[in-house]
Design a binder for these strands. Structure first.
Lengths: 347, 347
DNA sequence: TTTAGCACTTAACTTAATGGAGTGCTAACA
DNA sequence: TGTTAGCACTCCATTAAGTTAAGTGCTAAA
């Protein structure tokens, strides 16, 4: 366990600030002018040597200024940083962007990713509150004429998922009616997860009483259901990657960009709802492509409707204080907006 | 009007081929070995000087080999190039990828963009057959409970567009029923364009006979309608841009990438259905961001269902012959698949 | 414990030197 | 008249050497 003196802490803090703002290694002379204490550059050099011995800062070459190491950022984040109070202008942006009328939870969550990326200039990820709290509240099959049927699934949270199918010739709309009634009787009110489980087991058997060949229908229902039950991250500010990337090589950029496009895979990187706010720096992220970046994840809480995630990906040299401040504001505002949205359907 | 001798034409062709394959300026000595005619390097130098005087090839510096100029590519494309016959393996890939079952035209068109980008390693754009040939064939409002209504619009081509709305408290599902009947009576069978036009003019007036306050409904109907009537390009192989880009600067990459993301703006760049196949090279493209690239657009024809577009964006130094060959195959296969799809709804 | 002073190190930039690929031109040749 | 060998010339790319500025560690004195 590392403990720093007041002065060492001030120096580390100044190095982190200078480096994240200017991008250049920080030398002892420039620190003399900035520090609120009066010491010579030689003294600061001595302290810096100490911080380096502890592994908190490193040189880029033998006679260069210092930059924070991963461990240094870690110490800074854990012991020094105070989240910055959100600028009232920024808060207004957040509130205004969430103030409009939304018809879907996903719209709110996607919008949040966009606004947060705009405010931070980084790349952001948002996940809606976990679906394990969603229950099936309705299922319809709407014949559209011309061999087409639309399947619609509704949850108690107001989520609507739909998909259009071309019906095989041996399956008419009329035949499907009793099946819909079967679903209504047996499955309405159950959590989506349970429905999904039953779909693998008892439903096919029971359904065969109603329908000669249930496969076609099961495909349709299963497909809409799994769409409704799938958790996916929304990504905002993908283009910002071009601004803060450390990669020169277009090939590496491609791999990175491609990672952000695989929204279904992001849970592996970002994780699941958990700690209030978690900062992962450099190789603390379990993905080699991101080992030069920092990832901040925050869980937000919408009471009995479960928890969701917002996350920011940026350079290791980022203004953590400001970023974390903004994320705190988003946690609150997003939770508030979603609660308001859910309340509409709880009536 | 430029006319080249047989030998000059051979030399230009060889320079284009060498440069697009190797990426290096081509010198007279290397050409000696490749050309099917027996002449010395000095002779070739003389001919090259002539081609340069015509503006077909240029030097990168005073004593360098030559590369084709825009004008040179132009001449090559217009007078020398023969579309390459599509490899049977590639043709199988195309046919297989379009062979599956699709539930939407947009799926077919989007899939085409992906496959073409895969085969060319470039970025591709596809546009479905023009919507002016689509007619409104059905409109539904499905109440989903809990203040929600789904509006569904169907066209004679089997296109289905839908959107979910939260209904204002002063608008109940029952009230909407006569309105749907009004739509069915008055608008079914009309081209979407006409419906859109009427929506601006006579409909609001007529509707006020049925409904106290038609604004809410008009918003809903207009919103779904304009979704259905909007033409947008599908983009495939955006990531390939990283491979063939000439930009080093991340900022320029960002602008370029951002252009490709604005799918509603692409018509300005790519144009509307027209010529069979059009090749635009370098600054012939009316967009400064693309002035170092080539854009090949091809119109495909689906009989009475109208025309669509496929396009490929790549480096100016691209194997035009192969690319154009592939696009020709796509024109045929895509038109065939769409015809088959449409036929299903014409029954 | 702090500080002034100094020798030392390194990146980044500039300048010079060298080799190779390719050209244009001239004069001879078929 | 078209073709070719020969040669001087140009420019890029690479390497080598020199210079400057920023910053360090260490020593010795306050």
């Amino acid at each position: 366990m590392i403990t720093l003196t007041e002065r060492q802490s001030l120096i580390l803090k100044a190095i982190v600030r200078d480096y994240t703002e200017g991008g250049n290694p920080v030398g002892s002379k420039s620190l003399v002018q900035e520090l609120p204490i009066k010491v010579s550059s030689a003294t600061i050099r001595n302290e810096m040597a100490h911080l380096e011995a502890l592994g908190l800062i490193v040189k880029t070459h033998l006679s260069s200024g210092r930059i924070p190491s991963i461990k240094g950022y870690r110490y800074y984040v854990d012991h020094i940083l105070k989240p910055e109070k959100v600028d009232s202008k920024d808060l207004k942006v957040i509130q205004h962007s969430l103030g409009g009328e939304f018809h879907k939870i996903d719209e709110i969550v996607a919008q949040s990713a966009d606004i947060l990326s705009q405010l931070t200039s980084y790349t952001t990820f948002t996940l809606r509150p976990e679906l394990k709290h969603s229950r099936l509240s309705g299922f319809r099959l709407v014949p559209l004429g011309n061999h087409q049927v639309m399947a619609i699934l509704v949850t108690n949270n107001g989520d609507v998922e739909n998909q259009t199918f071309t019906i095989p010739n041996d399956l008419t709309g009329d035949e499907l009616e009793p099946v819909v009634r079967f679903i209504d009787d047996q499955l309405i009110g159950l959590p989506l997860q349970d429905v999904l489980a039953k779909l693998q087991q008892e439903i096919p058997l029971k359904l065969s009483h109603y329908l000669q060949n249930p496969d076609g229908f099961l495909d349709i229902f299963g497909s809409v259901l799994s769409k409704a039950a799938s958790e996916r991250f929304y990504v905002g500010g993908k283009l910002n990657l071009f601004d803060y990337t450390t990669k020169q090589n277009p090939q590496e950029m491609r791999s990175l960009y491609s990672l952000l496009d695989q929204t279904d895979n992001l849970a592996n990187v970002i994780g699941t709802p958990g700690q209030h706010i978690q900062v992962r720096i450099g190789n603390e992220i379990t993905n080699d492509l991101l080992k030069d970046y920092s990832l901040i994840t925050a869980t937000y809480d919408v009471d009995q409707h479960g928890q969701g995630i917002i996350a920011v990906l940026g350079p290791t040299a980022m203004p953590y204080s400001r970023t974390i401040g903004l994320m705190g504001a988003f946690q609150r505002e997003l939770a508030r907006k979603l609660l308001e949205y859910y309340r509409y359907f709880d009536e």
